[in-house]
Simulated assay, not measured.
Amino acid sequence: MNKLILLLTLLISISISAQENKTQNLFVRVFDMAGKKIGKGHIYSINDSLIILSKSKKLKELHLKDIGKIKTKHSGGNNILIGATTGVLVGAILGSVNPPTDSSGGTFTWAGGSSGDELASGVTVGVLSGTIIGSVSALFKNSKTFIIEGNKEKWHVFAESVNSLYKRKKQ
């Protein structure tokens, strides 16, 4: 019984320590006044003149005076990259799983007569279909752009928008 309690305590403590301490789970890209990207990551904290971003367990502070605009969500290219990568993996698996035999043509029967042809066709079909799916999903991304330009009033509009979005997601 003692070992069971010890094991449960250990599992619970590992679970608790593995959780991140993000206040919001919104990914943003931050640009300076010239339009150059100066930061990206999930919003860790936001106050009257500072936003703290979390990326790869590292925190980055960006001050209001340095911020020109903020865009929510990842760029559309991210969707395309994820779609293409997923398509390549799925296509490679489908092309490798069912190689052609004397009695059947394989997954991609038009590909040819060897396992290499099946794999190449699977990767090609996968990258094309994944790229198309990623491109279509990028069209419906619905990201927002907030023009800040170091202005406190515009900053408060952004902060309130983030806080209201976070409260809706939390409920």
Rank of each mutant, 00 (worst) to 15 (best):
D117N: 06
P99L: 03
F146Q: 08
I132C: 03
T131D: 12
L64R: 06
L94P: 04
N25L: 10
L165T: 13
S96Y: 03
K65Q: 08
S56K: 15
G113T: 09
K22H: 09
G112Y: 00
G106H: 08
S135H: 03
F158P: 08
G83T: 14
L26Y: 11
L53D: 02
E149T: 10
L139V: 09
Q171H: 11
S17M: 11
E160I: 06
S143K: 11
T101F: 02
F31C: 07
S49G: 14
G95L: 13
L50M: 07
G95D: 13
G106E: 08
D32F: 05
S114N: 01
A92P: 02
T72P: 04
T72R: 05
T107N: 02
G105K: 15
T131Q: 04
V28E: 10
A34C: 05
L6E: 15
L7V: 06
I70G: 03
K154Q: 15
I147V: 14
L62E: 14
L8C: 08
N98S: 10
G113V: 04
L62H: 09
S49M: 01
N98W: 07
V162Q: 15
F146A: 08
L59M: 02
K69G: 00
G113L: 04
E118I: 00
L6R: 11
D66C: 00
S114Y: 01
T9W: 03
N98F: 01
A92R: 06
V136C: 13
K69M: 00
N25K: 14
T145P: 10
G126I: 02
L59F: 01
M1I: 11
S49I: 07
L8T: 11
D48G: 05
K57W: 01
I16T: 13
N21Y: 07
T131E: 05
K37G: 06
F31Y: 15
K144A: 13
T107D: 02
G106C: 06
N25H: 12
L62C: 12
D102K: 01
G41I: 11
E118Q: 15
S129N: 15
L53N: 05
I52R: 12
L165I: 03
L59S: 05
Q171E: 14
K60P: 05
E118D: 03
K167W: 05
L53K: 09
F108K: 03
S49L: 08
G77D: 10
S54R: 09
K71T: 05
A84L: 10
S17N: 14
Q19H: 14
Q19I: 14
K71A: 08
K167C: 04
I132Y: 09
S115D: 10
S121V: 05
L50R: 09
